[in-house]
């Protein structure tokens, strides 16, 4: 059955259906509907809902619930996610599974409450201290956001590594028909390592502290080895041909807007392809590389001044030119704006 839901609410309901039994949050626009929804639904579902005193506390509550072995989630928006970075680093160090949602808004600083994509670096390159990257998925529709959150609980438990759903204010606020995932199909894994009281087993310890350099290096090598396996979770969507004049690369809301412009150009007989990374880390490197080699030029657009762009430039062979168009500060580029930009690039040729 398809229901009409806001992005934030669809993600909340999907989490509950995935067996998420604890949600900790702190109000911040533009994701407040998610915390509202959880405050109502979580007790109904027999789970724990708590509004904490800050995002710093929130992420440490997430850490506690994860250590106790339950499926746990939080959601926030950019400034709040900045406050969570310490705790995220600890989650990674202690190898605790958790699902995090960032409904990105304009920054830096307090910025504003409009949609943005300027937390790509923070999410995919580390964010907190230490040598790690977060598993990051970027939805571009409400439906996709819901199924992504649902699947994220299995993925985070599989690797004992937090998963970030990197949405933006537009996606959080729009209402779309969504087929919600089924309750009960996804089950929390058995966690022998969780803190449940040392009954009939040796005591379990959750920590990220290794005073001995060799011990910490070994722990880091173990993490790095684990990160390599996360390549199995690479996801992307492409609509390409063998002789593209231009390949458009974008994620999330911008990818959605660009599709519109691409369709229009195709209607005019232009050969334009589109590549949408769904997993931002791990990034679909080889897929993007081979797609880009079928194009004369590559065009990247983001609601930032070029963050994913750096990854695209690193991946696309040097002989193929990569052009960029970004808007920031909470300005969402219009389909026509992107159409005009693409058209001018096509007319100028390579």
């Amino acid at each position: 059955m398809r229901v009409l839901m806001k992005g934030t609410e669809a993600m909340a309901e999907a989490a509950i259906r995935a067996g998420c039994s604890a949600y900790f949050g702190y109000p911040i626009t533009p994701q407040t509907e998610l915390i509202h929804y959880m405050s109502r639904r979580m007790p109904e579902a027999g789970g724990v809902f708590l509004q904490a005193e800050s995002e710093v506390s929130v992420i440490n509550m997430v850490y506690g619930a994860a250590a106790a072995g339950v499926r746990v989630m939080t959601s926030s928006s950019s400034p709040g996610v900045s406050l969570m970075q310490e705790g995220i680093s600890y989650l990674v160090g202690a190898e605790l599974p958790a699902v995090l949602i960032n409904v990105m808004r304009g920054g830096p600083g307090l910025g504003n409450i409009q949609p943005s994509q300027s937390d790509y670096f923070q999410s995919t390159k580390g964010g907190g201290h230490g040598d790690y990257k977060l598993i990051t998925f970027a939805p571009s529709s409400v439906s996709e956001a819901a199924s992504m959150v649902y699947d994220a609980f299995d993925i985070t438990e599989k690797y004992r590594h937090p998963v970030m759903i990197l949405a933006d204010g537009a996606l959080g606020q729009i209402m779309e028909p969504v087929s919600l995932p089924e309750q009960g199909a996804s089950k929390p894994s058995v966690k022998n390592w969780a803190l449940t009281g040392a009954k009939g087993r040796p005591a379990n310890k959750i920590f990220s502290f290794y005073l001995d350099p060799k011990g910490l290096e070994e722990h880091n090598l173990h993490l790095q080895e684990k990160f390599k396996n996360i390549d199995d979770e690479i996801k992307y969507e492409e609509d390409i041909s063998d002789d593209m004049e231009i390949l458009v690369v974008a994620y999330g809301t911008v990818a959605r807007i660009l599709k519109n412009a691409v369709q229009k150009l195709r209607g005019e007989g232009r050969k334009v392809g589109i590549f949408r990374p769904i997993s931002l880390w791990p990034f679909p490197e080889s897929a993007l590389k081979s797609a880009s080699m079928k194009a004369k030029q590559v065009f990247v657009s983001e609601m930032s001044y070029g963050q994913m762009l750096e990854d695209v430039r690193r991946i696309v062979p040097d002989e193929i030119e990569v052009k960029f168009y970004g808007r920031a500060g909470g300005v969402v580029p219009s389909p026509n704006e992107l159409y005009i930009k693409l058209k001018s690039l096509l007319e100028r040729g390579v």
Binding site: A94, G197, A198, N204, F207, S208
Partner: peptide, 8 residues
């Protein structure tokens, strides 16, 4: 010799 969690 009990379950223990580190905290930040």
């Amino acid at each position: 010799d009990t379950d223990v969690s580190e905290a930040a």
